[in-house]
Amino acid sequence: MTDILNAIIVFANFVLVPGAAYGAQLALGALGITLVYGVLRFSNFAHGDTMAFGAMVTVLVTWWMQGHGVSLGVLPTALLALPFGVAATALFVLATDRVVYRFYRRQRSAPVIFVIVSVGVMFIMNGVVRFIIGPDDQDFADGARFIVSARDFRDMTGLDEGLAIKSTALLTIVVALVVMAALFWFLQKTRMGKAMRAYADNEDLALLSGVNPDRVVMVAWILVAALATVAGVLYGLDKTFKPFTYFQLLLPMFAAAIVGGIGNPVGAILGGFVIAYSEVAVTYAYKRFLGHLLPESLAPESLVQLLGTEYKFAVSFIILVVVLLIRPTGILRGKTI
């Protein structure tokens, strides 16, 4: 019996809990991508670096606050700095839209042009972030590290395995849930949210109704900036802030958005968790897990790891390819690409 419990705990500790946090981060990122795709009708390759930019501003403000002795106690100071990050990113993204995307929108350029333009924007943002904060890891997390540490858990339960729950993991999930609820409330209930859905649904008709396209586009960018910054900061708190990792996140985030059904916000969330759990489950070494379950004679010698962690991005890529082949619209039907 204790063996089974130990197996469950070790699985929860290394797969369930980290996967939930990572899934929430991917889901927030995929929501931003899906929103751009639905409202502005292109795949935004600059989204990863928008996250990096938002996280960077938040890191800088957090440092400034820490320097002045501002603190939230057990919660990370970054939460206080988050609104500043969102505001700065919104301004930056709106300026980009004014200078770059608006020109192509007026030209009624094809979506593929927008995609290439967004690649250009990506490189610029990439450079800006590295120029300001540098390419290295930055530490900005403070507050309590653990809600439950592995040792406390072991002492509490008397089991061999410990379940550590990082405070950032719980924080990620709570913040992500709040942000998603707010987003859905906005899209379903408010006048502007409905106008945005109308615009995403049928642009021609929206132009022939009272929907103001400039305003819809502006609010969409603000939402995207907010989602990207929140996702970026949560990821940074949970792991570490490094500009390049956000660029790497682009693939799993796109995979999440497409697997769930691009253009569909519920799909983006679902896709985020599908990708996150696949990645974690496939790259996890099951040796200890199986060691608890199997009799000693059968206990595995090797790591029992399907894929090395360095290949984790291949997982999202494979899922992406399979979904595009079998069900191109995604799990919940989105727009076909």
């Binding site: 006048r191 859905r197 649904d201 103001n212």
Partner: peptide
Amino acid sequence: HEFSSLTVRDNLMMVPPDQSGERLWDA
């Protein structure tokens, strides 16, 4: 043409221009 994911009533309510609910400040 219709906004297929909105209700009939919402489709109609979408038409009048410059509604204050679309302005962040007023909202």
